[in-house]
Write a protein that binds this DNA or RNA. Structure first.
Lengths: 219, 219
DNA sequence: ACCCATCCTGACCGATCGGTCAAACCGACT
DNA sequence: AGTCGGTTTGACCGATCGGTCAGGATGGGT
């Protein structure tokens, strides 16, 4: 180990350390000192390469967002049947998170955290939103309670909360919800969920209220 | 309302201030000094009534959990049709959060935050989990990808993420997703979602794979 | 040799944090 | 009058935080 740090890699050492620590302990759970120590690097170097702790955090996230976006787009085949495209979308999401377990905690913490990050999140989330929206174009109405945006929210919530809630759900789940077998079952369920939504959508008659007497309208 | 003072007047002043501030800025975004100032009270009094900042945070959450649990249970009518019971459950969840807008941010931040809180969350979440599970008993198999636990996760995720993601979704949503009209639409969608899941469940044949060739099976 | 830009260091800063403490306050009871 | 328990105060603590700075190394170009 005479030359542990090949030149020019300092920034990525810091980025990697920040990735690991932020993903486990959150933005406020980690100090710049911690990151520097983990990276085996002087603390001042963190500020040399990244303007601030927040910028470092964003740099970590930006990397994830890029890969995530690419994974979603790669799953897209415009000529495949709709159900298959939806399954592919769910799989792409699941696969990506399985390979980047720290990602969901990072984004979730970011969303409920400092509002100063919201523009950053929006900038990165919007492409994925538009993309998922496009999959349902033609099948889902543009407005109303069956619009694509609702399904984007349903599905991404079901996927991401699988991971963020896993640690607290474990006792009720009867074992770790992120164990391979449990995760495979969850994937199966999410496929089933996509099918159920699709069936509901395609068989939906234009008649507005399928069931009587529970209109709760706007307040 | 939300329970009177647990002890004297001062303690509930602190609790109320902590509620407001934690709900907006999270555990780490608020200092004990901030809470004391907001409550118009000496900082040392916070530690006099609550052992630590974390205990104060838990006290805030515990109050919410109690009301939430009560709201869910109140929505339960064992003799009503299943679909109606599910709608009532969704409505109870939505109504509760609408009336306590800070709650979802609090729990979400708690889940992705310090793991030391996990036992606390589990203690409070489990009753609601068991309760929701009971609604589907008989209709949902005990094991496998259609077990009740999956639906608990799907629905609670769809409901809670409606609120936690609202601020970042606004630009894509075309307006505030928490505006009364948007929220009413979301409620309609969630009812539709519950119906779609129920339809899928009741019409499900015992045959395991409804569609060929994409088994990603258990690992 | 010199320069210069990049990379790196360790010491340092002011601010803020959660938490403690001894003392003071205060109404009720004897 | 005294005193006693619950309540309140302000000063204080050590630790840690994000961030800065002056200057030391290093290496390639001239």
């Amino acid at each position: 180990m005479m030359e542990p740090s090949p030149r020019g890699e300092t920034a990525s050492l810091i980025l990697q350390a920040a990735d690991e620590m932020f993903g486990e302990l959150g933005l406020d759970g980690v100090s710049v000192r911690d990151v520097a120590v983990r990276a085996g690097v002087n603390k001042a170097l963190v500020f040399y390469y990244f303007a601030s702790k927040e910028k470092l955090f964003e740099a970590v996230l930006e990397r994830y967002y890029e890969v995530h976006r690419a994974a979603l787009e790669a799953s897209f085949q415009s000529d495949a049947p709709l159900a298959q495209r939806l399954h592919a979308l769910v799989d792409a999401y699941l696969d990506f998170i399985e390979q980047h377990r720290r990602y969901p905690r990072l984004v979730q913490a970011l969303v409920v955290g400092n509002p100063a990050f919201h523009p950053f999140i929006q900038r990165n989330l919007e492409p994925m939103f538009r993309f998922t929206e496009a999959v349902l174009v033609g099948i889902s109405p543009e407005h109303g309670h069956l619009a694509a945006r609702h399904f984007f929210l349903d599905i991404s919530a079901a996927v991401i909360n699988t991971f963020t809630y896993a640690p607290v759900l474990a006792p009720m789940w009867g074992g770790d919800p992120l164990a391979p077998a449990a995760l495979a079952e969850r994937r199966q369920h999410l496929h089933w969920l996509a099918d159920a939504l699709l069936t509901g959508l395609t068989s939906a008659t234009p008649s507005p209220s399928p069931r009587g007497g529970e209109g709760r309208g706007e307040g």
